[in-house]
Computed example of a mutant assay.
Amino acid sequence: MSTIYSGLLRKVEHLEQIRIRLTLPDTDFLDLDWSYSKTPSKKIVLIIHGLEGSSRRAYIQGSAKTLTDSGFDVCAINLRGCSGTMNNLYRSYHSGATEDLQSVVNHVLQLDKYSSIFLQGFSLGGNLLLKYLGEKRILAKEIKGALAISVPCQLADSLHQLLRFKNILYAKRFKGNLIEKLKLKQQSFPNLISDVDIEKIKTLKDFDDIYTSKAHGFKDAMDYYAQCSSLQFLNTIEIPTLLINAENDSFLGEACYPNDIAKLHKTLFLEVPKYGGHVGFYGPDNFTYTERRTIEFISNFN
């Protein structure tokens, strides 16, 4: 119920978002929706949505409003093809496309305005964020901390859960949205995807076998899941990072709760509240548990 309420019924009002388009190194683009604190701020939070989400989803807008009300600027990232305008290339977004997050970080750094950058990711965006932090790269000194919420840390495990009967409505909706986008891609790239290919897509795994893996340089869906699951990158995260996965998240299996890693980790903190569903945390006055924890966590860096 919390997952459905937050996904379909929750409304967030009085948030202004200003869109700018960022050109990427490969000539594609990302649409970024900016929200600003009422007072000038040197602190910014970059937010990444989940599978088939966007910056206009309530969980993104709720977080953005809470942050701007607390003195932070916000840049809500629309991953490729998720802003309402189809991206230019055959490729789109996926759970491990950290190069796009790096492009946004570079853009924010070039503004030379912010001394503190925080990262927040939900679901697929949370996996992307954790992978980004744990990859072998030198993080900008301005990046102070991160929060990842409802994260499928082991992608194959999460897929297994989504294919179970209990999640059939969610899986059907995700698959339907993805296929509609793929049909639009087909109009621009008829030589890369055929009607027969699209007809073969019966499950989310089929979609990743036929499109996601092939469009992004992976052998197949299982190779994509293996290379992009953030679980294998958690041990090398060096900045303070809070991971919140609800115990009753029906999208996550046991492998998505890295209890053993977090117990020994110096900078990764795992919270497993009993309730919250999948990005379905809610609270009084339209102020969710994860929004409260976000402010509490990043306020420690002021």
Rank of each mutant, 00 (worst) to 15 (best):
G121H: 02
K274V: 10
S6H: 09
K202M: 10
L130E: 06
T203H: 13
P25N: 07
Y289A: 03
I237E: 02
G50L: 08
D112N: 15
I179R: 02
A246E: 10
P273K: 09
L24K: 00
L46N: 05
L155T: 12
L24V: 00
Y132T: 04
K38E: 10
P152M: 11
Y170Q: 10
C75G: 06
A76I: 05
L264A: 13
D112P: 00
K113F: 04
S54R: 10
K172D: 15
T68E: 11
T3A: 11
H107V: 00
D31R: 04
I143C: 02
I18K: 15
H94F: 15
D209A: 06
F287C: 07
D209N: 15
V279A: 14
N177P: 01
S158H: 14
I239Y: 01
V12Y: 06
D197P: 02
G84I: 09
G53C: 10
R293H: 00
E52K: 08
E16S: 11
E291A: 05
S150E: 06
A255I: 12
D260A: 14
D195Y: 13
F29Q: 03
D28Y: 00
P258Q: 10
V74D: 10
K166F: 08
F297A: 04
L139E: 01
A146M: 10
T66D: 07
A226I: 05
Q120G: 06
T85P: 03
R164Q: 15
K200R: 15
T267M: 06
K11S: 05
Q61K: 13
D69E: 15
I179V: 15
L30Y: 03
S63C: 07
C228A: 11
V279H: 04
I138S: 03
G50A: 09
I298L: 13
Y132V: 00
G84E: 11
E247T: 05
S6M: 10
L129F: 03
K166I: 08
A221F: 10
T290V: 10
G126I: 07
L192T: 01
Y257G: 09
G134Y: 02
H94D: 14
P258D: 10
L234C: 09
